[in-house]
């Protein structure tokens, strides 16, 4: 299966590690992965700020870049939900809408793809990590991503997933909302941090980097330098490597200090 990997702006710029982890997992699940060089943004930042052209024009760039692939995978529920909305933006151009519909129906969020659409299941991983998972809104409510991350993490021996209270309540990111109404966003992030930390995790996990940056940003500002905030793909990829003995210490792989509980 030939996969076009849509890396997403935030992963490309801020945490490339998630991109590499995603590709490692996709290859382990039997895919051939390509990264179209001229890909850009899904358009969501502009579109949700009221600039419709951001959606329609970038939809066409996406079509150009990815139409030739068997499937498209992105490590973000929020970007995939935006992409899934593309056909609806072209009600007046049925032919284009139909082409887009064919493409977006084979465009998947990474964890959903690995669970339901990949050629083969992921090999078992191993990683000692106490974690809690935040359900990002777009993935959860637009794409039905709920069991996928949990099911995948369960294949990783040693991952101890403790559910936090209100896991499905928004962390306050919301794209431009997090800047325009930063005071509310901060309070929402605070609530999220409180519920997450109540499970005493080594790491807070999620499937959308926007949310993860929001949560990590609040944690660090509160003075918490210890709790890691990771994409599920990072944990799964580390687990795969650790299981095959390729990395001595999982903590080094994720680029942060090895977690120690005192």
């Amino acid at each position: 299966m030939r996969i076009g990997f849509f890396v997403t702006c935030l992963v490309d710029a801020v945490r490339p590690r998630i991109g590499f982890a995603s590709i490692q997992l996709l290859e382990a699940a039997g895919c051939t992965v390509e990264v179209p060089a001229a890909q850009t943004c899904c358009g969501q930042p502009g579109f949700n700020s009221g600039d419709r052209a951001s959606g329609t024009r970038l939809a066409q760039v996406f079509l150009e870049q990815f139409e030739s692939f068997d499937a498209v995978v992105a490590p973000s529920g929020s970007c995939v939900a935006m992409i899934r909305d593309y056909p609806g933006l072209f009600a007046d151009q049925p032919a284009l809408a139909e082409r887009l519909q064919r493409l977006v129906s084979r465009t998947h969020e990474l964890l959903d793809f690995l669970t339901h659409h990949a050629p083969q299941p992921l090999p078992a991983g191993a990683l000692p990590l106490r974690a809690t998972y935040h359900d990002s809104c777009s993935g959860l409510r637009n794409l039905g991503i709920k069991h996928q991350p949990r099911q995948l993490l369960a294949t990783c021996d040693g991952v101890d997933l403790c559910e936090m209270r209100d896991a499905e309540i928004c962390c306050g990111f919301g794209g431009s909302f997090s800047v325009k109404l930063g005071e509310i966003a901060t309070r929402m992030a605070d609530n999220k941090c409180n519920h997450a930390l109540a499970t005493q995790p080594d790491a807070i996990l999620g499937g959308d980097l926007g949310c993860l940056l929001n949560i990590e940003g609040r944690l660090r500002r509160r003075g918490d330098q210890r709790t890691q905030v990771l994409h599920v793909a990072e944990v799964l990829a580390a687990g795969q490597l650790a299981a095959s003995g390729e990395l001595p210490a999982p903590g080094q792989f994720v680029g942060m200090p090895v977690t120690t509980k005192d």
């Binding site: 710029a13 945490r15 490339p16 590690r17 590499f20 997090s178 966003a185 901060t186 992030a189 500002r221």
Partner: peptide, 24 residues
């Protein structure tokens, strides 16, 4: 310019060069 964010939260800095540069 992004005080709305940094008034209450830090902004985790990028890890290094872009994913696509590293991928190349």
């Amino acid at each position: 310019g992004l005080d709305g964010w940094t008034e209450g939260r830090d902004m985790p800095a990028p890890q290094g060069s872009t994913f696509r540069d590293q991928w190349r």
